[in-house]
């Protein structure tokens, strides 16, 4: 397997996007990289997501009246896993931040983006490209982690950005949105007007920095993890360059790196869930920051600061 990885020339070569077999089809190739690996994985992930969640929803759905209490029971492991995740994230994570009303409004978007990222992360863990090599299929058809592509994460962050701003304008209005970007300082003492431009510039930059940070965080974590994993797996092949193949030292390096790679794969599995959660959770936090409650808190803080300034004078 490590030799297969070595065939990719570098750890980056194994992780980065590449052309799929479909790219070699003439009419597809003519329109560019339409059928790159990550694009194929995006489509595949989207199909798996929709089919999987529709299947889970059909199992979670309330049954017929004649079924008694059984109509409320969720059957099937996939549906139960989805239900546990949804209930936990909704009740323990999102609802404490957004409140019940906003949670109901934003739950479809937040959970769609969570499961979309999760599916892409998990599918990316499957060694599909390596299997193609193993079975002699040298044209890449499938494989790769689409969320390790900055273009994909940026697109998802664009959705988050739109969601945050839609919520902001709906909750605060345009003037409220502007006021929010000044942290309510315009309502404070006149002296604070001096810092309003600075605060506004920082907050306005923050409007864009937040989604950019979302994109880079997801991309960097998925890319970094896969590069590390690929590097570790490639170590035996690298050792083969300096050590005699089949020697004790070579076996030792291979077993050690193989074990470490297995452990790292479990870590990657955890990271797949974690990064999906972090993206969704931070989006929820950013949405909640642009709500009336937060705004009122800021006004309160400004009032406190103004009172302290007045006391000093």
């Amino acid at each position: 397997m490590s030799n297969l990885l070595l065939a990719a020339d570098s750890p980056l070569g194994h992780v980065l996007n590449g052309k799929s077999m479909w790219s070699e089809i003439s009419w597809v190739g003519e329109i560019g990289d339409v059928a790159s690996l990550h694009e194929v994985m995006l489509v595949l992930g989207g199909i798996l997501l929709v089919l999987g969640l529709m299947f889970a929803a059909s199992r979670i759905r309330t049954g017929r009246d004649g079924q008694g209490n059984e109509r409320y029971v969720t059957r099937g492991r996939l549906a139960q896993i989805v239900e546990v995740i949804v209930v936990y994230l909704r009740d323990e994570m999102v609802q404490p931040i957004l409140g019940e009303k906003q949670t109901r409004r934003w739950l479809p978007f937040l959970f769609s983006i969570f499961f979309f990222i999760l599916v892409l992360n998990l599918v990316g863990l499957l060694p599909l490209q390596d299997l193609h090599h193993f079975f002699g299929l040298h044209h890449f058809l499938l494989g790769g982690t689409a969320t390790a592509n900055i273009n994909v994460t940026a697109s998802l962050a664009l959705f988050a950005f739109v969601a945050i701003q839609v919520h902001s304008f709906r909750e605060l209005g345009f003037l409220g949105w502007l006021d929010h970007l000044t942290c309510g300082l315009t309502k404070g003492p006149k002296g604070l007007w001096l810092v309003v431009p600075i605060v506004f510039a920082v907050e306005f930059a923050g409007v864009f920095i937040k989604p950019v940070a979302l994109a880079i965080r997801l991309f960097a974590n998925m890319m970094g993890g896969h590069i590390l994993l690929a590097t570790i797996i490639m170590l035996p092949s690298m050792a083969q360059l300096g050590l005699e193949p089949g020697s004790g030292a070579w076996f030792g390096v291979s077993i050690a790196t193989g074990s470490f790679a297995v452990a790292l794969t479990f870590l990657e599995l955890f990271v797949a869930f974690l990064q999906a959660f972090v993206f969704m959770f931070l989006t929820a936090v950013f949405i909640s920051l642009m709500s009336h409650e937060e705004h009122e808190d800021e006004d309160h803080d400004v009032d406190e600061v103004a009172a302290e300034v007045a006391a000093i004078h």
Partner: peptide, 24 residues
């Protein structure tokens, strides 16, 4: 890579639309 970004936008938009009306 605008093709990849566009694909991501399109796929998520379609998936979200279906999930919004049929799943959640």
């Amino acid at each position: 890579n605008l093709w990849v970004a566009g694909t991501a936008l399109l796929v998520f938009a379609i998936a979200f639309s279906i999930l919004y009306f049929k799943v959640w």
